[in-house]
Design a binder for these strands. Structure first.
Length: 179
DNA sequence: AGGATGATCGTCT
DNA sequence: GACGATCATCCTC
């Protein structure tokens, strides 16, 4: 999914950018919300692929995921950072910051910049909807991987399931994870 | 550049 | 009653 484009059209305007950082939450993964089975919150993870799984975290932020396995298998890809593309001014306004670096570098930052919230949970990202995912013209190269960020569970924390575009200046998290 | 902390509430034990 | 797939802020090196 590195290099794919994520855009959201709202009455305020179009915002979006190119995906440069993701994390995979796979089958049998103790760090995945789907690990303990299907529940109201995570039901979308068990649905068809390429749909939005949006959940609230720490009582104040939203995180956006793309479902990634066939119907019945709970899995998803957390989008952690975008290279800002469309609607820079609107994203600055929503984020309340001026620095481009702070617009979309972080899962909840990009959700805020694109106005992604729980109302979009379950959206078909390949349909003609407001929130869309578009494949790149040519696949991204120079993809690096590392441990995931913010995972405490031992065992799950070791796995290299974070993916990012090498050399991108738009990544989130500690620099040591993205050399 | 990197570590600690508080905010804040839905979800699960 | 505890704990997050986080962020902004404050602190020390």
């Amino acid at each position: 999914m590195i290099g794919w484009r994520l855009v959201h059209r709202t009455p305020e305007g179009l915002t979006g950018g190119r995906i440069v950082e993701t994390e995979a939450y796979v089958l049998g993964d103790p760090a995945s919300h789907a690990f303990r089975g299907e529940r109201p919150r995570n039901r979308v993870m068990f649905g068809p692929p390429f749909h939005a799984y949006v959940y609230r975290i720490y009582g104040r932020y939203w995180c956006f995921n793309v479902t990634s396995e066939p119907l019945g298998t709970g899995a998803g890809v957390l989008v952690r950072a975008l290279e800002p593309g469309e609607g820079l001014a609107l994203m600055r306004e929503r984020r309340g910051v001026d620095a481009d670096r702070l617009l979309c570098s972080g899962p909840s930052r990009l959700a805020q910049a694109l106005a992604i919230d729980g109302s979009l949970d379950g959206s078909d990202l390949l349909a003609r909807g407001a929130l869309r995912l578009e494949p790149p013209l040519s696949p991204a190269t120079r993809i690096g991987r590392s441990r995931r960020i913010g995972i405490g569970h031992p065992g799950a924390a070791r796995r290299l399931l974070r993916f990012y575009e090498k050399g991108s200046v738009w990544l989130s998290g500690p620099k040591k994870l993205s050399p």
